[in-house]
Write a protein that binds this DNA or RNA. Structure first.
Length: 375
DNA sequence: CTCCAGCAGTTGGTCTCCTT
DNA sequence: AAGGAGACCAACTGCTGGAG
């Protein structure tokens, strides 16, 4: 009995579309030997690639991939999309619900759990040339080119047959009826009649036994010994789409922390001894400075919720403000943020002081308008 | 006035670790 | 082993303010 929930693959591991590049670059049966760092920095999780391509035992791929490759890049691109779309029941559902019956559709971020699964699938659609408008919370797609590809129908039918077999289909009812029963036509955003016409079923629709997927290869996989590889991996370059930032409102958080800190320190040291945004004289500004007798204490404010991040980001700045290029302008460097101090954080600060770096941490509470002791 | 460096916060890509 | 969540990282945007 067919159960589509058996179709699953990690939706949070990204780069599913990269199987297309691997198929183009390598002989089909070598694709799964080259999923990691073998070509232009391509890294795709091997298990993910196996599932998308419906690999057999021994990493052999169904013949449809070699045939798609032979028929040209568009057919390969379209079949890779179908391989991805039908590799997870969640993607099938999202496409069924997102389709608008004219070959187009829109998937909302929430339809895929609102996180990386959406981002990854959106990226796959873009990389495969099927997205028409990729937004922060939605991606619109157009499958009309795919449906109009005369080279794709029989290969799609064979792919559906393999995917349905993985889901438990035993050959009855017929392939097309089973596809329609599970709304595959809606996945492709077309009518049932058009879907039936599109799938040009030939005698090779149902794979032979030796072509059906084999799922018990986990214990047979060869374990390779560790081998050192010298070299360098070029990571993704070029441009990426980004959504606008909210820097204007973010600035306010920093300012709020600064105001609370200023008020508390003025109460402790007097208005004449506390200043903010003071120039170091080297084209940089210090968030807050306290004058203590003839010495100074420099404060750097950070807004990350992570104490480790706050310290990492602030220390380089404070050290430069204090020591660049050689003078010691301050006797104490203080990091201030809303993050709670941790045991490790406290240990780290003590260690830094023990090796001669006078750095401290103070937690600011904006709501209570208080500042903690020095850690 | 324009230019530009510095800054805070956001983002996608990568990686690691815990759970199933 | 595979899936999922999220930590980490570097690259990015927009704002600010000083220099010329």
């Amino acid at each position: 009995m067919t159960d589509l929930t058996r179709l699953s693959v990690s939706l949070t591991k990204h780069g599913a579309h990269k199987v297309r590049s691997l198929l183009e670059k390598f002989p089909v049966d070598d694709v799964l030997k080259n999923t990691w760092d073998k070509h232009s920095g391509i890294r795709i999780d091997r298990a993910q690639a196996r599932k998308i391509l419906s690999a057999f035992a021994g990493d052999k791929l169904p013949g449809i991939w070699a045939e798609a490759k032979r028929r040209g890049s568009d057919t390969l691109r379209h079949l890779v999309f179908l391989g991805i779309a039908f590799s997870h029941h969640t993607l099938i559902d999202a496409l069924v619900n997102g389709g608008t019956a004219d070959g187009k559709g829109t998937i909302l971020r929430a339809a895929l759990g609102g996180g990386k699964a959406f981002t990854n699938f959106k990226n796959d659609l873009e990389e495969l040339g099927l997205a028409t408008a990729a937004q922060v919370n939605s991606v619109a797609y157009d499958l009309r080119g795919l449906l109009a590809n005369p080279q794709l129908g029989d290969l799609a039918a064979q792919l559906f047959s393999i995917k349905l077999s993985e889901a438990g289909w035993n050959g009855s009812p017929s392939l097309i009826d089973e596809c329609v029963r599970f709304n595959f036509h809606k996945v492709l955003s077309c009518s049932e009649a058009d879907f039936r016409r599109w799938l040009t079923i030939s005698g090779k629709v149902v794979p032979q036994d030796d072509e059906l997927p084999d799922t018990k290869d986990a214990n047979e996989e060869a374990i390779s010994p560790f081998r050192f590889h010298a070299g360098h991996t070029d990571r993704k370059t070029g441009t990426i789409a980004r959504r606008s930032t909210r820097a204007a409102s973010a600035r306010l958080l920093h300012n709020e922390i600064q105001s609370v800190l200023y008020a508390v320190l003025v109460a402790a040291h007097g208005k004449a001894n506390v200043g903010t945004e003071l120039s170091t004289g080297s084209s940089t500004t210090i968030d807050l400075v306290v004058k203590v007798g003839v010495t100074y204490e420099f404060y750097e404010i950070k807004t990350s919720p992570s104490i480790k991040k706050c310290l990492r980001q602030a220390l380089s700045q404070l050290i430069e403000y204090t020591y660049w290029p050689s003078a010691a302008r301050a006797t104490k460097m203080v990091v201030a943020s809303e993050a709670s101090i941790t045991r490790d954080g406290e240990l780290y600060l003590k260690h830094l002081r023990s090796i001669g770096i006078p750095v401290y941490y103070r937690q600011v509470d904006r709501s209570k308008k208080t500042v903690s002791k020095e850690y």
